[in-house]
Design a protein around this nucleic acid. Structure first.
Lengths: 204, 204, 204, 204
DNA sequence: GATGAATGAGCGTTCATTCAT
DNA sequence: GATGAATGAACGCTCATTCAT
């Protein structure tokens, strides 16, 4: 009661934060339907009754989890943006995917599997929410292809991201992380083969 | 005794059959967790209590649904096997996928999305079951690549099937059937580009 | 179809009989409530749907099982009645009880435990039915005590049968057949101690 | 903070308590299998769904009911322990049994009948639980016989407790409370007849 | 008589959400 | 803001009994 308010605000913030992170993790592992509010509360170390102070419904928690995934994605692309060559950025993205191969083999892509589960519902646009996060990734990838001067960058983005979702799904269904490794190498080779000429600054 | 006995057997068979088909359809649309036995019973026009005469648990119904998907797959590949050229068979497969674009955009690949949902559970090897059906598809595709005389037919199979799962997932997440069309065309072009020389019988 | 009818009648009879015996056994082991008609049908090797041709309800099967127990009891007392001395008959009865110690330690007295379960119900006098079988035993025991010339033979019968029910229950609850052995010996000694003078043929 | 917090704790405690008491009573009257959670909830005046906040399963409720019986037993023996003479303690126990004759004639001994029902199951050691409560009674009785200086106090305890269980069962099966009275008197006389000499402090 | 199949009421249990303090 | 407790609507599953042949 005598604590400076700042700390309390921070406590509240960290509780919200903890709930978002916990939801993202637990839902990734168990799926939305098999995850109970109690599961999330336990993982976040928040009393069950208190969850509803921060999130009005379970769906709101799921939306928040998607926000977490978007944030992770942003962190990743921000790091890659520091690379000068767009092709290297894309290859860095693929390498990041491959580095998560064990998690993918066990639980699939966090955003992709969430999208699959949410797309089975008709209720309030929760399903669209997952699409939005995937769209973020598509947009960033498309931008790289555009900077490479390649034709149909949007189509290429769909191909690359689709390949990632597909290989994650197969690795998961077959419970085999090697799928991520071998298909990741294929993607790297494919990226290298695209558009022989560097897009810019090429001396004659 | 002189009645055509087939009728009774057929009645029984059709009820089991109806339940399997209904499960496959309803689960494709709603997911396993959001599908109740009552949903399935209604869709199959079977009294709720009677479902358990044919399937002891809900999980058994899901396994049966996977069996339905395997059966459909088999029907499809059997048809394609009548084509002489393995490359044409694979292209026929891709065209079959694209023809299902609206369903894919709304509910994803029946087997793939089921695999995603089942892989979130630890209990009895139900999850492996979905992997097995996907493996059937992979094996058939691999065989076609092998007949084409291409190197690493297994890796190519993973690439093709992965591309299908990925584009289905994206079409579903973005609610856009066009993804199936454009990415399908990419796959057709890719198949045509593989292994310039026909595998056999090429005159000099 | 061409069999002599006699055999079929016998088949019917043996089916009824098999159902009664199966019910008695299965109910002794599992209790009434935990025994399903399917359990009984399986144990009797009778198709489920056919059970209702012989017994209109599950309760009727339980009554029939009580009849089986009454029949067994009658067989036992008929054998003991061949002994000349009533005291020896009673001691024979006790020895018969002790010989069943392993069954008693596992499942209790068939009639006693059935009475306990049925007495928890208010519906149609099924509960009284079990009391009737126990009454048969009490009456026979009372008659032996009467022939011994002992006072209050009815009270003595309650004591002896009560001791049997009590030791069966304890052996069962403690899962210890030795209870039957040691308490049986106590009963034998007690019987020997009753009414010093033989009831008849005593020379002056 | 300054509120009498006891009230909340007491409320929680009383709800658990009410559920235990209600379970003990209802199960005594109806048996475990014929008692539904709704029955117990109604008797305890607790909403059905709330029962599971206090007890995870029906079996846990049954264990709690056995605990209630153990507690009652303890209260009874604690009272009897205030008597100086072990023989009087045992006679007091018998008189307590007889005083419950109407309940016994209607529903049998609460612990004994519960033991009978539970012993029909193989699942988790719930059956052993009932044996443990009976063992508490046996141990106390044995101690009294030991203090009386009698040989084989354990065997005597089995005899006394067995007689109680037997007469309860017969009173119940015959729906006759008089069985409790007359057999109770027999037990009192038997106790008086044991070991002519007082165990200690006998003046020469 | 014999039999597999049908039927529906009911039970134990779960869980998102709300409430009282 | 924080919290244990409360609530009730479902859901999966069982089973005695009935039905159609």
């Amino acid at each position: 009661m005598t604590d400076p308010k700042g700390s309390r605000t921070k406590t509240v913030g960290s509780k919200r934060q903890r709930l978002m992170v916990a939801t993202a993790q637990v839902v990734h592992r168990q799926g939305v339907e098999r995850t109970t509010i109690a599961d999330i509360a336990r993982a976040a170390d928040v009393p069950v009754g208190n969850v509803y102070y921060y999130f009005k419904t379970k769906d709101e928690l799921v939306v928040a989890a998607l926000g977490e995934h978007a944030r992770h994605l942003r962190t990743l692309t921000d790091g890659l943006d520091r690379l000068a060559d767009p092709r290297e950025r894309l290859k860095g993205l693929v390498r990041a995917w491959v580095s998560q191969r064990d998690l993918a083999a066990r639980y699939g892509c966090p955003t992709g599997t969430l999208a699959v589960e949410l797309d089975k519902r008709d209720d309030g646009g929760l399903d669209a929410e997952a699409g939005r996060v995937i769209r973020l990734l598509l947009d960033w990838v498309e931008q790289q292809f555009r900077e490479l001067g390649l034709a149909d960058p949007g189509g290429l983005a769909l191909t690359l991201v689709g390949a990632y979702q597909g290989m994650s799904l197969l690795a998961n269904a077959l419970r085999d992380p090697d799928v991520m490794t071998t298909q990741g190498e294929r993607l790297l080779a494919w990226l290298d083969s695209l558009g022989g000429a560097p897009p810019a600054g090429d001396p004659a």
